[in-house]
């Protein structure tokens, strides 16, 4: 049944338990090709556990899912080859140069060496990093690092890119430029799956889901959610839903 044509992610009753604790509780949803999908939830709501399953890093306890055309149980390695991932915490190697990071990740993602050269030059130009190509990534300001990390996460043209709090701590102008990059990736057909604590960014998503206590409590366009709860912003919607969390930290 889970044979997606238009959908790059389909999950049905996806569940993960650790002992008697249900971290992710039967979540069911679909994400369309080229969609920007916001994945919101309070700390401890189960977001990280869910993302680990969707990336093929952690096997579900029960339920079904198809990611980028591959089965979550049988083909986790194929999933990994067809997705990109970046987070605030793990992104690039600080003691490799900009060029070396690009070459390293492009190699890991299986690009040919001629392709790597071409894309590396194009990418450095696109980001305006010509003068920094041979500098250590650790020396770059955070905003540049995050833009570079995102470009590298999609260097192999994956079907889906997972972004885990990509803009945390980034200055407000760079944060908006980063979203410009997200829009253009989505326009190229890459599905974007993104988490954030900046709730204005929830408004930039095509659809937003809200996790509470391991469950996906709601899923819709930002406009539909605001209308449904009769609240002016996504920040208010999030606070309204998340304060009713039973899972105390």
């Amino acid at each position: 049944m889970l044979k997606p044509a238009e959908h790059t992610i389909t999950a049905k009753n996806l569940t993960k338990t650790f002992g008697d604790f249900t971290a992710v509780d039967a979540i069911t949803f679909e994400v369309k090709k080229g969609e920007i999908f916001g994945f919101l939830g309070a700390n401890g709501a189960g977001k990280t556990t869910a993302i680990k399953m969707l990336c093929g890093l952690s096997s579900p306890s029960s339920g079904e899912a198809n990611i980028a055309g591959f089965d979550i149980y049988k083909q986790p390695e194929d999933i990994k080859k067809n997705i990109g991932y970046m987070s605030q915490h793990f992104s690039l190697y600080g003691d490799l140069t900009v060029e070396e990071n690009i070459r390293f990740y492009a190699g890991i993602y299986g690009l040919k060496s001629t392709e790597i050269k071409e894309r590396s030059v194009a990418l450095i130009k696109e980001l305006g990093l010509e003068n920094y190509a041979k500098r250590f990534v650790a020396e770059l300001p955070l905003g540049w690092k995050q833009k570079l990390a995102f470009s590298i996460a999609i260097i192999h043209n994956p079907k889906i890119v997972f972004l885990d709090e990509p803009t945390s701590g980034v200055d407000p102008i760079t944060r908006r430029q980063f979203w410009g990059m997200i829009y253009s990736a989505a326009a190229k057909g890459i599905t974007v799956f993104v988490t954030t604590h900046y709730l204005d960014e929830a408004e930039y998503c095509d659809r937003v889901s809200i996790m509470v206590d391991g469950e996906m409590r709601d899923l819709d366009t930002p406009t539909a959610l605001r209308t449904k709860y009769n609240l002016p912003t996504m920040n208010d919607v999030f606070l309204h839903m998340a304060v009713r969390s039973k899972r105390s930290e």
Binding site: Q88, G169, H197, L239, A242
Partner: peptide, 10 residues
């Protein structure tokens, strides 16, 4: 409050 969700920040 870095990396902390909106509810806990409040």
């Amino acid at each position: 409050t870095f990396g902390v969700d909106a509810v806990s920040r409040k």
